[in-house]
Amino acid sequence: MNTEYLVEVKELKQYFPIHTGFRKVTNLKAVDGVSFSIRPGETLGLVGESGCGKTTVGRTLLRLYQPTGGQVLFEGEEVTDKNILELRKKMQMVFQDPYSSLDPRMTVEDIIGEPMDVHRLYKNRAERREKILRLMELVGLNAEHATRYAHEFSGGQRQRIGIARALAVNPKFIVCDEPVSALDVSIQAQVVNMFEDLQKKLGVAYLFIAHDLLIVRHISDRIAVMYLGRIVEIGDADEVYEHPKHPYTISLLSAVPIPDPRLTRQRQRIVLEGDVPSPMHLPSGCAFRTRCRYATEKCAQERPVLADTGNGHFAACWHLQS
């Protein structure tokens, strides 16, 4: 491996064909040319509103969907249909809903052991069992619970099972798709801390997809903001939060309710007008222009590209804010 990056995504596109008439098919452009890269052991946060394509990016990356276009490189090697099964030993996923992503008819032991069965990562039953117990301990589950079923656990514990399953093949990269949003506030912190500890211990890199911007800022080294299938801003977590450049990021951050009454009273909230346009009929040029207060003629005609604003901070806008 001689590249700096663990995962490189280049111009990834994912269109879903939708039947809109008898023979007419319109493409729903869920992801429309997304590029980013992740270093080993790094966390990239991916934020955006529902329908912006953040989950699709995560799933397409692992080939749960067949991408329409673009390239994904893992350790410099292109991910194709041929090598994806092999590569899933190195890239795994934690799903959003801990209630529906675990098979109710399997015991915890079998859920965690399944990836190892698929990739034949043990020599005998004893080794399998030992590995499973080690994983359960790693994510803070009691070894006595190995023979129980998923429904016997609370949401936080189920998410731990899901994480243990992802870790079973000893991956270098995990896509975390809204892993804490289904959990209660007090349990969220437990799971977020566990993600951080596991990263320190095992050196895994995360693509952390979430809509809770405070949690994402907390856990991420870098952050990418998506709007209607495209990344509009990407950079260092603190840099993006302290000095957002794209008008969408600015209003998104100003809309986040802060649990601090004094700060809230001082704050100027920029409320965006209207709703997100349908991804079936994207506006021409910059997709954000229909809700942007700085929008001009140029925004309607030409699509802005990510431009470097210094310190590895990129934003795609014709009227960059300072």
Binding site: V185, S186, Q188, A189, L214, I215, R217, H218, A237, D238, Y241, I258, P259, D260, L263
Partner: peptide
């Protein structure tokens, strides 16, 4: 247990 704006 929640990240605040000042000590993210």
């Amino acid at each position: 247990s929640i990240p605040s704006a000042t000590n993210s």
